[in-house]
């Protein structure tokens, strides 16, 4: 095998298919969208070069920053929710009865398609016949809110299914990481008289730090470019109250025929996500990696 790998041509051939796919499906569209961002184009007729005008408009576009704010709020909430998932995984990993079954149940939302989840939660949130408001009324609330119609609430209402959707995914990752910790270390700590809380906080957490960092990046990046449930459940409405960056971009490019401007917003979305990722990695960077 070493002999095969020493030939540069073979390496090139092995890499080429993947490189081709990544190039055609990711990098070329990326460059194209940056390029379209320089055009005034309705996506149908002729293009007109306008330089950086679209980017400048986007930076001054209050609606864009509103949607960016909503995306960042989602990022904050999904990052905070990681703590909850971590706690759940700790419990699951500590050999309680039925852990295996519970883990599978938590994973189910992850297996459903986003549109199915959206339809499900649209029914849950229905102001008159929805499960949520029926329960609230049954326990004595007189005027439960119209979750998806009230501009002050709608964003947070949609966060619930979004977080719910990905809970199983993060729990699974943490669970696997926790299971990887050698039993002997925990055994030793226990003999030294550490309480379960101390074991969790001082031993398990530091040992899976690497995984936690990865999930933080995943959660933040995933939130910044989040689209599915918002698009299906409210379409960004009412009046933009639940618009996020990706849904705003989609709306510009595909419903209002501002393909050039939409591309510019899409490219800004990429840059923002990139910057945030770099910052997050800087903050969570560690000098000394802990080893088992």
């Amino acid at each position: 095998m070493n002999k095969v790998m020493s030939n540069k041509w073979v390496i090139a051939i092995y890499i080429f298919p993947a490189l081709l796919l990544v190039g055609v499906l990711i990098f070329i569209p990326l460059i194209l969208s940056a390029y379209y961002g320089l055009m005034e184009w309705d996506g149908i007729g002729d293009m007109k070069f306008v330089g950086l005008e679209n980017y400048i408009t986007a930076i001054q576009d209050l609606k864009f920053w509103d949607s960016a704010l909503h995306s960042f709020l989602l990022a904050v909430f999904s990052t905070l929710s990681l703590a909850g998932y971590l706690a759940v995984s700790m419990i699951l990993a500590s050999k309680i009865k039925g852990a295996d079954l519970l883990r599978k149940i938590y994973l189910i939302p992850m297996l459903l398609s986003s549109v199915a989840i959206a339809q499900l939660w649209i029914k849950v949130f229905n102001p008159a016949n929805g499960m949520l408001n029926r329960i609230l009324m049954a326990i004595g609330f007189e005027n439960p809110p119209a979750w998806l119609a009230n501009p002050d609430i709608v964003l947070y209402a949609i966060f619930i299914p979004i977080l719910w959707q990905y809970a199983g995914f993060y729990i699974l990752i943490y669970y696997a990481a926790l299971k990887n910790i050698p039993e002997t270390i925990i055994e030793a700590a226990r003999i030294d008289g550490a309480s379960p809380l101390q074991i969790a906080y001082r031993i398990k957490l530091p040992l899976i730090k690497g995984v936690v960092k990865v999930t933080i990046v995943l959660a933040i990046v995933g939130s910044l470019k989040y689209f599915d449930l918002i698009y299906v459940m409210t379409g960004g409405g009412p009046n933009g109250a639940s618009e996020v960056m990706a849904s705003y971009m989609y709306k510009l490019a595909f419903s209002t025929n501002e393909f050039g401007y939409g591309s510019a917003v899409g490219f800004l979305l990429l840059i923002i996500t990139l910057i945030v990722t770099v910052i997050v990695r800087k903050i969570t960077a560690d000098k000394d990696e802990i080893q088992y």
Binding site: I122, N126, P127, A146, W147, L148, A149, V154, G237, P238
Partner: peptide, 12 residues
Amino acid sequence: FNDGHNGLSDQE
């Protein structure tokens, strides 16, 4: 109009 009309689709 029904409550929460701004959040309901025409179908609903």
